[in-house]
Design a protein around this nucleic acid. Structure first.
Lengths: 333, 333
DNA sequence: TACTCGTCCTAGAGCGCACTAGTAGAGCGC
DNA sequence: GCGCTCTACTAGTGCGCTCTAGGACGAGTA
C-alpha cells in the first residue's frame, strides 16, 4: 500500500480511500491509484482491514457437506449477503470435524454473525455462541438459546403430505423419522397428530432413522424382512427427508417392490435430488432461497441494530406431488 | 488480551506465549492464564494473529456447491490440512458468483494457498493466480499455468469402462461428454481412442453435455426422440460423470427403457451418489480422499519450500461394476 | 478584504496480536 | 564470591490497514 501511494504520488490514506470507494478523491487520482495498484499487483489485505475497522462485515456459515438441502441454502445465502454488503465464509462439519470446531474456525476468523444450517449441538452450547455472536439457526429450533430461527412450518408440510396419502386411500402409513436431524421432532409429532386425526392411531408407526440414504436403505431392508416373515408391507412411507426417501426407494426397488404401485414414498425438502429420481419424488417443498434470505436478513438486521431480539421466521412448505405416490394396491388392509 | 494479562498478573506477551502453546511459561502460569481467559471469554483474534505473524497457515478451497464429487473431496481436505497444522476456508461458486469472485474472497482473507476443485477459468487467469499464491488445480489440467495438478488417470478409467462394455458385447456405445467440465477433454479423447482400438470407429458418437443431471436428461430425451423416429438406441452410454449418468437413467427409466436390460449406463467419479441408485451405478471410481490428501500436501510442501516447482499427481481410477451395466439386448446390431 | 465552505488531500494513532531483544532471578561449579 | 546458563518473564515494535482530525486551496458570500 505504501508502494502504491509512493508510486502514485499520494498518501497511504488516499489509497485507502480509493480502495474503499469512499468520497474524498478526485476521479483523476482515483484512476491513477487504481492503475498503479494494478501494475504493482497490490490487493488490500482483508486481515489488516478487518483489524483496523472494528467490523468485519463477514457472515460465517456452518453446514454439512453432504446435506443437499443445505447446499441449496448456501446458493441462496451468497447473493443476499452480497446485496447487503457482507462477505461469506463457509465452514463445514464432516467426519472428524464437529460443529464446535467449525464454529470456532468461523468465530476466530472474525465472522460477526453465524448462520448455522441444521445445527445439532446442545442448546446450552448454542446459547453460548448466541451470546458471543449474532447467531441464526436454520431448520432447528433451539429452545431457550439466544438465536434467530428460520424454518418452515414442519407441521403444515407433514399434514399436507399425510392428507395426500390418506386421500389416495392409504391407511398403513409409516414414518421413518430423522432422528436428531433438524426438524425431525416436529415432523414426527405432526405425523402422529395426523394419524390420530384420521382415526389411524392404531396404524401409527415411527421407525427410527436419520437424514441419510443409509437410514432409508436400512428401513427398506427392515420392512422387507418383516414381509418375508409374513407381515404386510405398509402401503405408504413418509421419510424424514429426501435423502432418506431415496434410500427407501433404492432398497425397495432393488427387491422388486414397485413404487408407487406397491408402496408410496414421500420425502421432505424438495432438495434438487428429488426431481431427479426416475419417476420424480413426491415431497414437501421448503423454499431454500427464501429461507436463506431470511437467515441473512435476520443476521444483518440484528448486527446493525444491536437492541433487536432474536426472531423467528416460519415459511410455508408445500407438497409437490410427483411420481412416487399413488393409490394403495388393491386389497391392502 | 490486555485484560487477560492484567487479571492474570502477567504481560501480554506471556498470554501470547500461552495461547501459542510455546515454551517459555511455567505450567502454573499457563493454567492461570487459560483460566482467566476462559472467565473473561477471551479468544485470540485470528485477523490480528494473521497480521502479526507473516503467515496465515490457511488454505483456501474453491468448489462448486452441487458437485458431489467435490464435496467428497472437501471431506478429505479438512483432516489432512489439520494434520499439517493448516486452517481451511471454503468459498463456493454458485449462480451469480463466478470463480474469480470466489478466489478473490479467499485471497483477500489471506489464504496462502488455493486449492481449486475443477476450476473452469481460462489458463491465463489461473496462471495469474498461480503467480500470486501457491495454487493447486484438482481434476483440471491447466497447460502452461503455474499450478500443481492432482487428477486421476482419466484415460485409464475410461479404458477400463470401455473394455468392460466391449467384453459384455456392446458395440453401439455413445459418450455423453462433460463439456468444459474437469477431465472431460481427457475422457472424450480416451473414449474415441478406445472405440478405435476396438474397431468401432464407425460407431463412435459423442453427445455434447456437461456434468449435471440436466445434461443427462436431455441426452436421454434426444436418444428417445431418435428411437421414435426409427433409429436404434445405443446399447451402452458412457456418461461424463455420475450426475450426468443419473440424468440419463432418469430419462430412460421414465420412458420405460430398462437399465441394464435395454441399455447399459456407466458413470464416472463414484461420488457417494452412485451406490445409492436403486440398482447401483456402474462407474469409474476416483479416490477422493487420496486426491484431497495429495492436493493439500502439494500446497503445503510448496508453501514451506518456496523453491519447489509445481508438480502433478496422477492417481489410478478403478472401474466399479454395479447394476447399470450388463450384456446388450439380443439382436442388437 | 475577510470570511466561510467544500473539495481534495495528509499526518498519525491505533486495531490485537507475534516476535525480537532483553531482564530478573535461580541454580551451578569453581 | 564470581561468572555462567537456564528458565520465566516483559517492553516495545511493527504487521497493513482504517479513521479522525485537520491542512491547503479555490470558489462563493458578506
Amino acid at each position: 500500500m505504501a508502494d502504491v501511494a509512493e508510486k502514485a504520488g499520494v498518501s497511504r490514506a488516499l489509497v485507502s480511500i480509493v480502495f474503499r470507494n469512499q468520497p474524498g478523491a478526485s476521479e483523476e487520482t482515483r484512476q491513477r491509484v487504481l492503475r498503479v495498484a494494478d501494475e504493482i499487483g497490490y490487493r488490500p489485505d482483508s486481515a489488516a482491514r478487518l483489524l483496523a475497522r472494528g467490523r468485519s462485515r463477514t457472515l460465517g456459515v456452518m453446514f454439512t457437506v453432504h446435506q443437499t438441502f443445505q447446499t441449496d441454502l448456501i446458493e441462496g445465502i451468497y447473493p443476499e449477503a452480497e446485496r447487503l454488503g457482507y462477505d461469506v465464509l463457509l465452514s463445514a462439519t464432516a467426519p472428524g470435524r464437529n460443529e464446535a470446531k467449525a464454529v470456532e474456525a468461523l468465530l476466530s476468523h472474525r465472522c460477526e454473525a453465524l448462520i448455522l444450517l441444521g445445527p445439532d449441538a446442545e442448546a446450552g452450547y448454542l446459547d453460548d455462541i448466541g451470546h458471543r455472536a449474532v447467531t441464526v439457526s436454520v431448520s432447528r429450533r433451539v429452545p431457550g438459546a439466544r438465536v434467530d430461527f428460520v424454518h418452515s412450518a414442519e407441521g403444515k408440510g407433514v399434514r399436507q403430505a399425510m392428507e395426500h396419502l390418506v386421500e389416495l386411500g392409504h391407511r398403513r402409513i409409516v414414518h421413518v423419522d430423522g432422528g436428531r436431524g433438524p426438524g425431525s421432532a416436529e415432523r414426527r409429532r405432526a405425523y402422529r397428530a395426523a394419524m390420530r386425526r384420521h382415526g389411524l392411531e392404531s396404524e401409527q408407526r415411527v421407525i427410527p432413522g436419520d437424514h441419510t440414504e443409509q437410514a432409508g436403505i436400512e428401513t427398506g431392508r427392515l420392512l422387507l424382512a418383516e414381509r418375508d416373515r409374513g407381515l404386510a408391507l405398509p402401503t405408504a412411507i413418509l421419510a424424514g427427508n429426501d435423502r432418506c426417501a431415496m434410500g427407501v426407494l433404492m432398497a425397495l426397488t432393488r427387491a422388486g417392490v414397485e413404487v408407487p404401485r406397491d408402496v408410496s414414498v414421500v420425502g421432505y425438502d424438495d432438495s434438487h435430488l428429488s426431481h431427479l429420481m426416475p419417476i420424480g419424488l413426491t415431497t414437501v417443498r421448503q423454499d431454500a432461497t427464501l429461507m436463506a434470505e431470511h437467515a441473512v436478513r435476520f443476521a444483518v438486521e440484528r448486527l446493525e441494530n444491536p437492541g433487536l431480539e432474536p426472531r423467528e421466521a416460519v415459511l410455508d412448505p408445500k407438497l409437490v406431488v410427483r411420481g412416487t405416490s399413488g393409490p394403495p394396491p388393491d386389497g391392502a388392509a
